[in-house]
Amino acid sequence: MQRKRVVEPEDKIREIPAVVFLFRSCTGSLEYPGTESAVTETLRCLEVEPVTDPDQTCCSGYLLTCSAHTPEVSLAVTARNLALVERKGLDTYVFCNGCYGYLKELSHILLHNQEYLEGANELIARWGYHYAGKTRIFHVQEMWYRLRERIAAKVVRPLNGLRVGVHYGCHYLARKYDILDDGGYPTFHEEIVEALGGTPVFYKERQLCCGYAVGRGFTHREEIVQPHLFKKLKNARDSGVELITTVCPGCNVALDREQPNLRERYGEDFRIPVIDLAQLIALALGVPTAKLGFEANTVPLDDVLAKVGVSE
């Protein structure tokens, strides 16, 4: 495990906030609602109160990168959502790499192009919003790592050496100057897994993209996405991975939902369950499994739960 980091977590999040703004994720609330629930429960467990706002909309970055609409609207939506947070004087914490990447990139474009910022602010001024760039944007995984000692102290269901293969997700690692670790070889998820009593597995393809790939699963599923995913999952299985964790519900969709299709096409049944890192932390911290929404998963978690000793 590396010790020298690009940014020390204690520098990135200096004071642990008592209250944070939790940015709702569409996929994390609808496709795998257990993610939303686990993030909320884990934050509360760690004595950080998440605040949400019903006026927040989708970050709208995802459809931008599929060319479904033009950047002007995404810039205005970003300014509007972040202006809501600024009114509360809080920092923004997201639990989806998509939201993270787009909020970071779009706010960066706004704050470095006066013309775009004025244009967006003009559009949202009709409802009294103004975006000034004061709220800082974090991913909750940064909070998990910052509070790793607090987490380790609160583990009540240790993972009993469960072999976990982590998946960082491209849209986190691509923010190469803002993130906790070296984007080329990050290890902080593995350290969290160790703190929970699991065995991190450094499988070769762990940094390979999920293949959900900003919509290519809809347009290039058989041509590109499935051969790509096959490579990743085969490598994970051959390395003895028993569970994959993600920090992005979009990655979760690809890695979990495609497994039956890969079985049909290649005749190999991987059956590696895929959950959010927050769900794994919540599990180890003793949050009841009834709140973690594992029934939304295509690949069941029975073996994982048995190994951790959950009988529910």
């Binding site: 993209c209 900003v214 347009t219």
Partner: peptide, 13 residues
């Protein structure tokens, strides 16, 4: 051009 995953690994490196 429609195959690009938009994973941004190119930018990362």
């Amino acid at each position: 051009i429609w195959r690009c995953f938009w994973c941004a690994n190119c930018y990362t490196l």
